[in-house]
Write a protein that binds this DNA or RNA. Structure first.
Lengths: 227, 227
DNA sequence: GCCTATTTTATTGTTGACAATCCTCTAGTT
DNA sequence: AACTAGAGGATTGTCAACAATAAAATAGGC
């Protein structure tokens, strides 16, 4: 998932965008946290101009919320918002999967299977961290998005939704028990793509995602009962 | 489709965003046109700072493309990009329609039918301009998006996709002959929603949109043959 | 005459200062 | 004690000048 070094970006504003995105995804900047322009600018060693442009960009991809004259905050992902996200994700990845089945070349499909094998190894090797497993999951979905050959779709998923999903990874890290069935579903999806069955591929992907949300949602409810 | 006056926005940057968006949608700023910061700033009577922030925002919602040190241009919607858009739209409005069937209240459904009646009157009154018919079409789709009760979905559709769709309206204005069947499809969709049949509503909406793209696509091919 | 190198010009990127707005903390009143 | 009013401070919004980069134009060599 090609993320080039921070200082390869051409402008300070773009670099600040990347650093902020990274900081938000890793949780270094916490959800709901106030983003003071002066603080961030001095911390990054730039002036407020480029930093403000970066914030405007992050606002566009829904990572921060801005209120005029009151400043920007890291977006706060409550259960309702996560539910909305998963609905949108279901729709977008569903169609991406259908298109991938139509457009992926044989090399890409082979790579897809390799990803699955690697993921299985990681699960079997019990010392693997949760983090890595989650990244394998992202790799699979990202690879399918690329296979759709639809740049708008790729942008929406990779540059917006996946960032948001990564943000709430820590909440859903207790989903370890579901990695096995998830992998099985991934295999079915890959099979449908290999058979060039777009309709089935879409159906399976949508089921996979809505199922994941159902599990996460239930888990969140349980935790709410006993805090 | 509540678009409040331009000067109600709190900051110059936000106002510039709206003016630029409007200018791009109406075609006052043409596709592919270079957007010179100095020119626009003086034309709008503001300095370059807020204008740059506005451009960054428009970049986020895909209305302009920016190349570092080379400036911003209005996005150019070729046939391929339009095809991508319609795929994304099919997915998003499909799920929006399903959710609308689940979540709309009776008042909203009644309003949906009123929109359809108004649209039919406009079609029958032959002196109505193409423009108005197209806006009626947008109203219908926008209303359904609102009914989904999914803010992220509403944002994606109303603040990103619909802008882009309006941009290529002039290309597709010769689709007049298709307004009748389109209205018929709208009625079927409204019926499915009224019956709370989310699955059917989604299916019909997707068929409606992919059908529209097929017609537009063919029309564009024909025009390409004989320029 | 055409291609390349260099200077010029225009445009973008960045900065620090200034103005406007909002939030907070204090003081006073009921 | 609680609520309102106002002063103070902090933060955001705006601007105009400066620096860096890219595009255009000119001059020189082949």
């Amino acid at each position: 998932m090609s993320t080039k070094p921070l200082d390869e970006e051409r402008t300070l504003s773009d670099r600040a965008s990347l650093r902020l995105t990274q900081a938000i995804i890793t949780g270094e900047l916490r959800q709901g946290q106030k983003l003071c322009e002066t603080d961030l600018a001095t911390r990054y060693g730039i002036s407020r101009g480029p930093l403000r442009e970066a914030l405007r960009h992050l606002e566009g991809i829904r990572l921060v919320q801005r209120i005029p004259h009151a400043g920007a905050r890291v977006v706060k992902l409550d259960k309702a918002k996560m539910g909305e996200m998963y609905r949108v994700r279901e729709a977008l990845e569903g169609i991406a999967c259908r298109l991938a089945a139509e457009n992926m070349n044989d090399g890409e499909i082979r790579l897809l299977y390799e990803l699955l094998d690697r993921h299985e190894q990681q699960i079997t090797a019990s010392d693997s961290t949760q983090y890595i497993q989650n990244e394998s999951d992202f790799d699979f979905h990202y690879h399918i998005a690329l296979g759709s050959r639809n740049q708008m779709l790729i942008d929406l998923l990779a540059h917006e939704l996946y960032h948001l999903l990564r943000m709430c990874r820590y909440r859903t890290s207790r989903m370890a028990q579901r990695t096995r069935p998830a992998l099985q579903q991934h295999r079915q999806i890959a099979e449908a793509i290999a058979n060039r069955d777009g309709e089935l591929a879409e159906l399976l992907m949508r089921r996979h995602i809505s199922g994941a949300w159902k599990s996460i949602s239930e888990l969140m409810d349980e935790e709410e009962q006993k805090p």
